[in-house]
């Protein structure tokens, strides 16, 4: 059980996330929706501790995530894998090594630093790649892959961590409609087969309604909606998205207007 208690984050005078209260049941698929700059990204990054909260507490079971340091923090990060909008792979390393990054926390440091991976680690990494039909690309350099393939590699890396939670930060915002489907299906399969909790930032309301079993709407850093997808009416959505509402509500899950998405500026991560 992941619990956020009054979590806030300020960047200078700007409040990115404002006293968020949230409880996530294991095995659920939670969609976090809202317009760009609503604080979705910062929220997810705080759970993985890429960003530290200014206030409040994050707990998981009996672990106080906010207070973790060193070895314990790294162990926590291994338990909640992160997937990024820009994939964040190491372009110059091959695909398999990128997936093996997910084993770094489990493997002994002295061996992994000189790339002497254990047979088990290799097997797990390969099995993760096979899950998404890209094991054949194992020896290729990651930056030679298409966006959709790279994101699947990133999901394989996350799966190789054998995490309890996967935090996906706008995983499809840089992809075309076909790859959007593939990536969202992959996340859904992981969620259903292995019971891994998925918390996913999404811009598209249709996708969120289609894949998630719970929606959390954010606006200006606050949670303004929390409930089942069906209970998110168009009125609520209009409130959530403001001027962008027309873009978001009208579009179907299969045609998320790739061009429009590419033009949209990526979620601002305040420095």
């Amino acid at each position: 059980m992941l619990v956020l208690e009054g979590v806030s984050r300020r960047f200078g005078a700007k409040v990115a996330v404002d006293k968020v209260e949230l409880t996530v049941v294991p095995g659920s698929f939670v969609g976090v929706i809202g317009r760009s700059g609503a604080g979705k990204s910062t929220l997810l990054r705080m759970i993985n501790r890429l960003v530290d909260p200014s206030d409040g507490r994050i707990r998981c079971g009996d672990v106080d995530v906010t207070g973790l340091r060193g070895r314990e923090l790294r162990d926590w990060r291994a338990r909640c894998a992160m997937i990024f909008q820009q994939f964040n792979l190491v372009g110059r390393l091959d695909v398999l090594t990128n997936v093996l990054m997910g084993r770094l926390n489990a493997a002994p440091s002295a061996k992994s630093l000189v790339r002497l991976w254990g047979v088990e680690d290799k097997a797990i990494a390969l099995a993760a790649l096979e899950q998404f039909d890209i094991a054949g690309l194992a020896a290729q350099r990651a930056d030679s892959l298409s966006g959709g393939q790279q994101q699947r590699v990133a999901i394989a890396r996350a799966l190789a961590q054998s995490p309890e939670i996967i935090l996906a930060d706008e995983p499809i915002a840089s992809l075309d409609p076909r790859n959007t489907r593939i990536v969202m299906d992959a996340l859904q399969r992981i969620n259903r087969t292995y019971g891994i909790t998925v918390i996913c930032n999404l811009h598209s309301l249709e996708l969120a309604r289609g894949y998630c079993d719970r929606l959390v709407g954010m606006a200006a850093g606050r949670v303004v909606f929390d409930g089942l997808p069906e209970s998110l009416t168009d009125d609520v959505a209009r409130e959530l998205y403001g001027l962008e509402a027309a873009d978001v509500i009208g579009e179907g899950a299969t045609s998320p207007a790739a061009a429009g998405w590419g033009a949209r500026s990526p979620v601002a991560i305040p420095a």
Binding site: N48, R77, M82, Q86, N88, M101, L104, N105, S109
Partner: peptide
């Protein structure tokens, strides 16, 4: 971005430097 990606997996500072 790769640095973020690798350190988010729970890698140590040294491992992040080595691989990312």
């Amino acid at each position: 971005k790769p640095v973020e990606g690798v350190s988010a997996t729970g890698a140590t500072w040294l491992e992040t430097v080595r691989f990312a």
